[in-house]
Design a protein around this nucleic acid. Structure first.
Lengths: 206, 206
DNA sequence: CAGTGTGAAAGTCTTCACAGCT
DNA sequence: AGCTGTGAAGACTTTCACACTG
């Protein structure tokens, strides 16, 4: 749909806009402006207008944006007009906490299973979800057409399970293990390592 | 120390270099090169050299970088040549998982207490750490000279506890709640919202 | 007239390419 | 030869500023 190629950095901001708009929507707001959103998010209003302009003309001149309308448009753009099933690999503290997080359901995602290699965990339930043997991952991914996986295993095991997931058809990985995964070009990877953020901040704490 | 102002984006990459170097160090490597680090991290070698050049000349021409030496230099630059005590606000699933995470200790940080407003949790221990009443946060922060806090409370409560923490002297916050905190300029905030990453990736999953 | 959409300008970041050192 | 450190070039991003619209 976009006429000009969309910079990845612009795509990365859309979920932020979505989150702000959802909050506005929940608080009963029906209209907003790039200026208001900008203040809310702590960025420039021109940036928001330019970002949105990559995808179309969503505002009404002199009025701003209809919150519900823009919400829907952004959801379509991000392919959130359907529910994405996900698996979590690693049923330790992090995997369990993520599995129990109630924030996925209303934002387009559904965790549908956990995987681990610990016999003591396999067969149990965590947050109402079954924990399977990691060896059954490929079969499960194929059977349920899973494209998204979250990796929450120790660093030593992460590369191997990532490759296992990818070989079964996973196309995007959210990686909680503190290392850089080496995977084929076509696989998208995003990393979450809280320590990286902390170390970034300590630079400024003199 | 830096002669020219250091772009924030450069500072943000240093922890990544630190992480890669630590892995190399642990695997017995004593020397590396910008090229090798670059492959490891999936970025360009010139970028690494340029980033490091903001802080000094750490390499030996024709040889590359001494791993242990560069590690130490980066730790100094990021002020990780000491241990940073931290508190976690919110003793739910996420707060508890983060508290139990063993990865902080060797990377410069120590979680020293949890805070919550749930009477059922206050006074208990999680991962060997005491859970205090959130009302005691200011006193604790002042008494222990805490500058770093992680926020892991529901979105509705996040702004209020962030302000409480800041008023007591906290200067940097790692925020797990899915909203943008509005805080004074001098407070550094980094956000972790896994859903934002997932939504970024679904854009590319057609 | 308030606020969008957008070329053009300004600013920032990355990559190149090479002198110089070991 | 192999690799660093770095100006200069190139690519990318943000911001400006204004014609245009409801």
């Amino acid at each position: 749909m976009p006429a000009k190629p969309v910079p990845d950095i612009v795509v990365a901001r859309l979920p932020l806009y979505l989150r702000a708009l959802t909050a506005m929507h929940n608080s009963g707001k029906t209209f907003t402006s790039s200026k208001e959103m900008a203040q809310w998010l702590g960025i420039g209003s021109a940036q928001i207008r330019k970002d949105l302009s990559y995808f179309g003309e969503f505002g009404k001149q002199g009025m701003g944006y209809a919150v519900a309308d823009l919400l829907e448009k952004l959801r379509k753009i991000l392919h959130l007009d359907r529910e994405w099933p996900m698996v979590i690999i690693g049923a330790g503290h992090i995997g369990s906490a993520v599995a129990a997080y109630p924030g996925f359901a209303h934002r387009g995602f559904r965790v549908c299973a956990l995987f681990d290699n610990d016999p003591a965990k396999i067969g149990t339930s965590i947050a109402g979800l079954r924990v399977y043997d990691v060896h059954d991952l490929p079969e499960y991914v194929r059977a349920h057409d899973i494209r998204l996986a979250m990796i929450a295993v120790p660093a030593e095991a992460a590369q191997a399970v990532a490759e296992l997931a990818v070989s079964a058809g996973v196309l995007a990985i959210l990686n909680y293990a503190p290392l850089n995964l080496a995977l084929p070009e076509h696989v998208r990877v995003e990393n979450i390592d809280p320590v990286l953020h902390l170390q970034h901040m300590t630079y400024y704490l003199g």
